[in-house]
Design a binder for these strands. Structure first.
Length: 840
DNA sequence: GCGGATCAC
DNA sequence: TATGGTGATCCGC
């Protein structure tokens, strides 16, 4: 979290503390020889080594930073960083200015207000939870080392020349760390071995550890493949009453573990996790049914059993003999419980984890880093212990305080958490209420005590870095690829969204985002592409006559909702069609969302699946250069031919088309086929006799069904440019053929029927009809929701969290530092009535 | 609603 | 030769 953007000043009373100006390498300057001024001139705080990581204590930062600087200076990346640094320094100056303006009276007021807020926060002090943060040690690197013993004694990192994701502890001694480009890692450590990441493997390991997590807290909250928050409170309660057997686990010694992952002869010992294959056998054996066995006797009994009984000598999984192991009975204490979990993880994965134990997530996170690797640390749940711990803690250790916040606060004389309290009067005035509150919570050692699963996802995106692209066709092609990938991802998760955002990064590393909100939800590749392309086009124009030179492009969809069970007009009509197929009625088929780029489907209408010509004034966009508007009577003079664009795919200037349409309407020409210029993907027409008095604008306002002067029902998709720009395969219509008319044989002329509930009314006024349909849609939605909930309720009792079924390494995260989470319920449509009104 | 910035992993 | 991808939030406008 940031929240620290704008008006952030500093006080002059702490000016001597301030590292405000751009002077030297900043970060945490506890190193005494820091007195040396910036001889290497612009060592920026944002370019120096971030050693805020386990295994990076006491490095020769001076030397490392020099190497980093030498490797970076003069690059485009470096120049951009320098620019950002200057910006930050400006912000600090502004902060300083604001602080200087603070009068003693103002400061007093700030302190008063701060104390009031603190008092308030204190009311919520809650030490009743035991929160555990677990973090695998150097996860990706550890997996690779485990699987390739040759890597074990070498400095290595996972990643490539471009970027490293993790480094092992040996490499960290050289200053090589995550988020560092590989080529710099090589400069710091010429012997560095770089290994390509293998996410499939990491995901598999993640499954294993999550299975174990779930046994301590079925509602644990994974933050990434290798990290999670768990609420141990309930487990610890259970532990008190548990038997010794419940707390007994089988441990292969480390030497056995190390050997177990090395290729060996067929007759070697079993390498399965004994807690998976052998422990269940033991636990259910008659000999161990005596639940009152003492801690001591359990291990003795197990030992004897395994020595004497053949049943416990051969692994049922691999048929090999079990290796040597010991049975360890863990105590009922918090520390024992966490140690047990970590040991089980190690037995299962041959990898070590570290853990932090504290009354809330904020502290637990800090603790898990304290005794890394392969260690754990606990803050006792007392007010004193918490205060003690927090007091001297550098603010940078807190999740949510990054290097910018660190520097901003540093300029105010705040570097450790107790400083936040000392400077509360100033902070109150200089930061937003959100930020201030966050700071006060930190200084008190307050954090979230609730471990919540992530709510609904809020956005989904795809972005790619590449070698410079600057040709329009190349850029459009990239945009197309990204749109396609995003559409696929959205569809896989059955999500649709409204806001399309284009992200670009120029070759100078400047990042821009441009977004557009559609009138409707979609996850269709073409729709997304049209929007993104338009945004891209605008950016290219802004750059003209220079080419737009990019090194990255991304497409994001936000304002998401679920596509499953969604009550679109589409699905309504489809449902209705199915119902009516027996009786022969066939309401207009509006199929925009599902098959947007399909050709006009006249199958079953006029007995042909081809595009009908002649009376039609239709043009199919073939994407060819020679594609032109040929509508005969429609006044299309303002419509020029398609721009050649987008990699051979023609682009149509819709504004002009719409202009032509308006023009036509104004002229009032009533000749054949002149009334309507519709851009559409699908169209159906009603029988003259049965012309529906429909002018139905569904939730998808870009898709309207209306009646033209020929008493024809036409589906028009002509809202905004995104949906209007014809794509290859789209069809432009000026008129609808009367041959292709489905018969509404079973309906009376003025009878209007709700497509959802099938209620019929004569001369149903349009607005009332719309309201009714709205209501019906909601009703169906509610039903679906309730059904969902019921089925969920039925399955909640299962202790296995659904998240164990990870399919991608995409993750959602949640920070405890934010405002109270606004749990997003299911989206409500306008005019939704209460549940009661639906069902009474 | 949009765009820039910050942060975590 | 060469500095990532995904998701979230906050702030100011």
């Amino acid at each position: 979290m940031d929240a620290l953007t704008s008006e952030v000043p500093s006080t002059s009373s702490v000016a001597h503390h301030a590292t405000g100006s751009s002077t030297i390498s900043a970060a945490n300057e506890s190193i005494p020889e820091r007195g040396k001024s910036n001889s290497s001139s612009s060592l920026m705080s944002r370019m120096v080594l971030n050693d805020n990581k386990a295994g990076m204590e006491g490095l020769d930062k001076e030397k490392i930073n020099q190497i980093i600087y030498e490797a970076s200076k003069g690059s485009k990346f470096y120049e951009n960083e320098r620019k950002k640094e200057e910006q930050l320094n400006l912000r600090i100056k502004e902060q300083q200015f604001q602080m200087d303006k603070l009068t003693p009276g103002k400061l007093q007021e700030g302190i008063r207000e701060a104390d009031r807020i603190i008092e308030n926060l204190n009311q919520r002090y809650d030490l009743s939870h035991t929160i555990v943060h677990v973090d695998m040690d150097a996860f990706y690197a550890a997996v690779e080392m485990r699987d390739d013993p040759r890597l074990r004694n070498k400095p290595m990192a996972v990643g490539g020349m471009g970027m490293l994701s993790t480094s092992n502890y040996i490499a960290r001694r050289f200053g090589v760390r995550a988020a560092m480009p590989g080529f710099i890692g090589l400069k710091l450590c010429p012997d560095l071995v770089m290994v390509k990441p293998n996410f499939t493997k990491y995901t598999a390991v993640s499954h294993l550890i999550r299975e174990i997590f779930a046994t301590y807290d079925p509602n644990f909250c994974p933050m990434s493949l290798d990290e999670a928050y768990l609420d141990f409170t309930s487990h610890l309660d259970w532990r008190i009453t548990s038997s010794a057997i419940d707390r007994t686990f089988l441990l292969r010694p480390r030497s056995v573990l190390d050997a177990s992952n090395i290729e060996s002869s067929a007759d070697s010992a079993c390498v399965c996790d004994l807690n998976k294959v052998l422990r269940p056998l033991l636990v259910s054996s008659d000999e161990l049914q005596e639940r009152t066995l003492s801690d001591f006797s359990v291990s003795t009994v197990i030992e004897k059993l395994c020595q004497n009984s053949e049943r416990f000598k051969i692994c049922p999984e691999c048929q090999k003999s079990f290796p040597s192991f010991k049975a360890k009975v863990y105590g009922v204490s918090t520390e024992d419980a966490v140690l047990e979990m970590r040991n089980r993880i190690e037995q299962r994965t041959l990898l070590t984890a570290s853990a932090g134990i504290a009354p809330n997530t904020m502290l637990a996170k800090v603790c898990s880093d304290r005794n890394k690797p392969n260690g754990q640390f606990r803050i006792q749940p007392s007010r004193e212990e918490v205060t003690n711990f927090v007091e001297s803690l550098p603010i940078r250790k807190i999740s949510g305080v990054g290097k910018v916040t660190e520097k901003l606060l540093g300029a105010l004389g705040v570097s450790i958490c107790s400083d936040l309290h000392l400077q509360r009067g100033v902070l109150y005035h200089l930061f937003s209420p959100t930020s201030f509150r966050y700071f006060m919570r930190i200084s008190l050692g307050l954090g979230s005590t609730l471990i919540e699963r992530d709510g609904e996802r809020k956005s989904m995106s795809t972005e790619r870095t590449f070698n410079e692209l600057n040709q329009p066709e190349e850029l459009y092609e990239k945009c197309r690829e990204l749109s396609r990938a995003l559409a696929e991802d959205l569809q896989e998760d059955r999500l649709v969204g409204k806001t399309v955002t284009l992200k670009i990064k120029t070759v100078a590393f400047e990042v821009k985002t441009r977004s557009h909100t559609l009138q409707y939800d979609t996850n269709d590749e073409n729709k997304i592409f049209q929007a993104a392309k338009q945004l891209l086009k605008t950016e290219m124009k802004a750059e003209a006559p220079q080419p737009l030179r990019l090194r990255l492009m991304g497409v994001r969809m936000s304002k998401l909702s679920s596509d499953s069970g969604r009550c679109t007009l589409t699905s309504m009509f489809q449902r209705q069609m199915e119902k009516n197929s027996v009786t022969g009625t066939a309401p207009a088929k509006v199929d925009v969302e599902d098959k947007p780029s399909d050709r006009l489907d006249l199958t079953g209408l006029a007995g042909t699946s081809d595009v009908v010509e002649g009376d039609f004034h239709c043009i199919e966009s073939t994407g060819d250069d020679d594609c032109a508007i040929t509508s005969s009577d429609c006044d299309m003079q303002n419509v020029e031919k398609w721009d050649q664009n987008d990699n051979g795919c023609s682009e149509f200037d819709v504004k002009r088309l719409l202009e032509a349409k308006r023009h036509t309407a104004k002229k009032g020409s009533q000749g054949k086929g002149k009334q309507t210029v519709s851009i559409l993907n699908f169209v159906r027409k009603a029988d003259e006799k049965q012309t529906p008095k429909v002018c139905d604008e569904s939730e998808d306002s870009s898709c309207s069904l209306f009646e033209n002067s020929k008493s024809e029902a036409v589906v028009v998709i002509d809202g905004e440019y995104e949906e209007a720009v014809p794509e290859r395969g789209d069809i432009l219509f000026a008129k609808v053929p009367s041959e292709a008319v489905p018969e509404f044989t079973n309906e009376e002329p003025d009878l209007v029927r709700c497509p959802i509930c099938c209620q019929q009314k004569r001369n149903w006024p349009l607005d009332l009809f719309n309201d009714h349909v709205d209501l019906c849609l909601n009703k169906q939605t509610i039903k679906d929701i309730l059904q969902d909930q019921e089925s969920q309720m039925a399955s909640t009792s299962s202790s296995t969290p659904s998240d164990l079924n990870m399919t991608t390494n995409r993750k959602r995260q949640k920070q405890d530092v934010q405002l109270p989470s606004q749990k997003k319920g299911v989206k409500r449509s306008k005019g939704q009535s209460s549940l009661l009104s639906f069902f009474k």
